[in-house]
Simulated assay, not measured.
Amino acid sequence: MADRLRIGTRKSAMALAQTAEIARRLAAAVPGIEVEIVKFETTGDVDQTSKLLPHGGKGGAFVAQIREAVLSGELHAAMHSLKDMPGNEDTPGLVIGATLARDPPGDVLVLRPGLSIEDFRRAGAKGFKIGTNAVRRAAYARRLFPEVEIIHYRGAADTRVRKLDNAELQRLPDGGAVGPADALIMARSGLERVGLAGRIAYEFPVSEMLPAVGQGIVAVECAMKDWQTRQTLALIDDPAAHRCAEAEREVLWVLNGHCNSPIAGFAAIDGTQMSLTASVLDEAGTLIIEASRVGPANRPRELGRAVGLELRAKGAADIIERSRPV
């Protein structure tokens, strides 16, 4: 059992809150353990203007630098939001040692001051600008609100809300700008982590906007051969969240999705059974392919593989290929 852990994390308020929760749980599970939180300013944190694709997607922007520190031995472990971890590629030498119990997984609507959800609904979102950087959220928003304008919007959760409130423009890589935004689509869990849950104007049901794979799950990654750290992290692992994560990420693996693919997936456990629903959309939100299955909760990857293969059989691979960067 480890008596000291160095855990790497991003400098954002949400990442620090998530890592502090890991430290609290470790302290409760292993009295006297020393947890050192090492802060990283990742590529995605430094550049809050560009789209994530040039940085290698979320994996390259938010994960790669901290992963390298674990592989080099600088860190014992790394904290990630599971939805930021690429699921279509192996990372030799690393393993998810623990997942925390899942926070609320859904997406929500945050409105600028002075705008009510009634105003938004009455107009059918016509003429409104919704900010998001997620291709999945943008695709669903275009499907739900065909007349809305989706604008590129970057930043940590608290930063995005601040920009919304101050009617700030979002700078673009070419030197231009868009906005200001009238609304944002964000993860409920992220807003709760930074104390902004009170800004939620509307919560999209899972049936209306399927979450990103792994949304709401905090993952702790460590070296595969570091059995001492793995043994310690296992003490704070939530088995239900871990199984759901395995099922959802298996869908990504089967589909070979990339950061420009609007892919969604959500698993839930009821007793000994697990349900899994996943979807693939085109970027315009006009075409959606969905698959749902139920299977034994103790065989999550098998369920994820079946759902992923069903999506492929329905034509999901063609949608993903068309959205692949050239």
Score class of each variant (00 low, 15 high):
Ala2Lys: 15
Ala2Asp: 14
Leu5Thr: 03
Ala13Tyr: 05
Thr19Gln: 02
Arg25Asn: 06
Ala27Asn: 10
Val30Trp: 00
Val30Gly: 04
Pro31His: 04
Pro31Asn: 07
Gly32Gln: 02
Gly32Tyr: 05
Glu34Lys: 13
Glu36Trp: 00
Glu36Val: 08
Phe40Ile: 04
Thr42Asp: 14
Thr42Met: 13
Gly44Cys: 12
Asp47Phe: 12
Gln48Asn: 15
Lys51Gly: 14
His55Tyr: 14
His55Asn: 11
His55Glu: 11
Gly59Asp: 06
Gly59Trp: 02
Val63Trp: 02
Ala69Gln: 09
Ala69Met: 09
Val70Lys: 06
Ala77Trp: 08
Met79Asp: 12
Leu82His: 04
Lys83His: 08
Asn88Ser: 14
Asp90Gln: 02
Leu94Asp: 07
Pro104Phe: 01
Pro105Met: 06
Val108Gly: 08
Val110Asp: 06
Ile117Lys: 05
Asp119Thr: 09
Gly124Asp: 02
Gly124Cys: 00
Lys126Gly: 01
Gly127Gln: 00
Ile130Thr: 03
Asn133Ala: 14
Ala134Cys: 08
Ala141Gln: 07
Val148Ile: 12
Glu149Gly: 04
Ile150His: 04
Tyr153Trp: 15
Arg154Leu: 12
Gly155Leu: 14
Ala156Phe: 09
Lys163Phe: 10
Lys163Glu: 09
Asp165Gly: 01
Leu169Val: 14
Pro173Tyr: 07
Ala177Gly: 11
Ile185Gln: 04
Met186His: 07
Glu192Pro: 09
Val194Tyr: 01
Val194Met: 08
Ala197Phe: 01
Ala201Gly: 15
Tyr202Trp: 12
Glu203Arg: 14
Val206Glu: 13
Met209Cys: 10
Leu210Arg: 03
Gly214Pro: 01
Val218Tyr: 05
Ala223Val: 13
Asp226Thr: 09
Leu233Arg: 09
Ile236Phe: 01
Asp237Leu: 00
Ala245Trp: 05
Glu248Asp: 02
Arg249Phe: 10
Leu252Asp: 13
Leu255Ala: 08
Ala264His: 06
Ile269Lys: 00
Asp270His: 12
Asp270Leu: 03
Thr272Asn: 10
Gln273Pro: 00
Ser275Trp: 00
Glu283Asp: 12
Gly285Ser: 13
Leu287Gln: 15
Pro300Glu: 00
Glu302Met: 06
Leu303Cys: 02
Glu310His: 10
Ala313Glu: 15
Ala317Ile: 13
Ala317Ser: 15
Ile319Asn: 06
Arg322Thr: 14
Ser323Gly: 08
Ser323Tyr: 01
Val326Leu: 08
Val326Ala: 13
